[in-house]
Design a protein around this nucleic acid. Structure first.
Lengths: 230, 230
DNA sequence: TAGTGGTCTAGACCACCGC
DNA sequence: CGGTGGTCTAGACCACTAG
């Protein structure tokens, strides 16, 4: 029943809820990777309808704060605060933040002289020996990325001794500078969102994430026919 | 009420409506700057509730296709062709999603040693043989893109045997990772939408939405996420 | 199987735009 | 002023996840 929701007018209800949740995350109430309360629970807690809670969550998702899958509770991706370098760069950390289990399968690991570009990127003399790693990365068992990494000699020796099937290189290198890696993701599994500050005018500020033609190639389900616009 | 909407399942109603509207825009029915039909009118036309129409519009807005103000009708922002990053992977898929017929005209296809940058991008030894393809891509007969692709030896052999005039390489590579492609679009025919937000990081990783686990379209995503950038 | 998010409906009131 | 989008409610069924 209609509820006069008269309280105050300027900030809409769902924005307030969104800000509140965001604040709770920032305050440490919900660490990255943890699960948030369900829609129904929050609806009751805030005394609003489920739809309003969903609107709030939609806003948080647009900001990249949370992630959601059908059937499972929403999880915190990263706080609104600045992420540390390691957090942004570590596949393992990122995966866990989404509630997924990161792993890896080593395709190749060998020691060879650095190519010109590699040497330049790693700031070492051309031809210096490096360790080159090719690893398939998996998200809860599903391969989503191919990682090609180059490590300078002293670091490479450490990397070579790691358990590369389950571990995170970045997390263990802790402070040791540099790795150069060209990562190619499986397009269907990962979406990159590019944030651009100065570009574009009116048509910016979005975040696009809708399924591009989902999993069923055959159907082609032509959309609406005559009754639609055309 | 209820609506069985049961019959076939996959694409949700609002996605169909969104695709339909987008197709109508692409078809020229609504030029940039023009006003779209109101929510209520579309709701009646499609025989759905207003909420569903709003969801469809929300998706279009997230793609930067339309803009909206309270009290006034929504207006078309971008030109007819807006390709979101997520759909960037397959030209053919993108084309069909717009109701256009994708095709291609092979300009050149030959085998030659990889240039330094190509070798680097494909992570193969410098000078290794690759297949280099130059193809003009057409949208329902009109050329809109020049595609330059480089494929390593084993993959290239497959590509060379494909029907490149009508087919999609990406869709057939099924799981074979690795391709490095430099695609240049005709400026007047295509507009890329850059998504912008207030987030701190210039590049962040987000999980893709769809659930699927079966047949996934392969894709290269030139992530250029070389760790060390900033 | 129970819980959760995804989708959809059919109402309602409001702030704002344009005629 | 009537029409439009923005917000909110209170139901409902479904597909999927997790224990």
């Amino acid at each position: 029943m209609a509820v006069d929701q008269g309280v105050s007018h300027s900030p809409s209800l769902y924005r307030k809820v969104a800000e509140d949740i965001k604040a709770a995350i920032a305050a440490g109430g919900y660490a990255a990777g943890t699960r948030l309360p369900s829609e129904s629970e929050l609806a009751e807690r805030y005394s609003v309808s489920r739809g309003t809670i969903r609107q709030a969550f939609a806003a948080l998702r647009a900001d990249g704060v949370i992630a959601s899958r059908r059937g499972a509770r929403r999880v915190v991706i990263g706080g609104p605060r600045v992420q540390s370098f390691g957090e942004l760069l570590s596949f393992s950390r990122w995966a866990r933040a989404m509630g997924e289990v990161p792993s890896g399968r080593v395709i190749a690991m060998r020691r060879r002289p650095a190519k010109p570009l590699e040497a330049e990127r790693l700031a070492i003399p051309a031809g210096s020996p490096i360790y080159h790693l090719v690893r398939v990365r998996l998200l809860s068992g599903r391969p989503v990325m191919i990682e090609r990494g180059a490590y300078p000699d002293p670091v490479g020796a450490l990397v070579a001794g790691m358990d590369l099937e389950t571990g995170s290189i970045t997390e263990r290198l802790e402070g040791v500078p540099v790795e150069w890696s060209d990562d190619r993701y499986l397009g269907s599994a990962v979406a990159f969102s590019v944030h651009n500050s100065t570009a574009v005018n009116a048509l910016s500020r979005t975040r696009a994430h809708r399924g591009e033609s989902g999993g069923r190639p055959p159907g082609r389900t032509e959309s609406a026919s005559d009754k639609g616009l055309k």
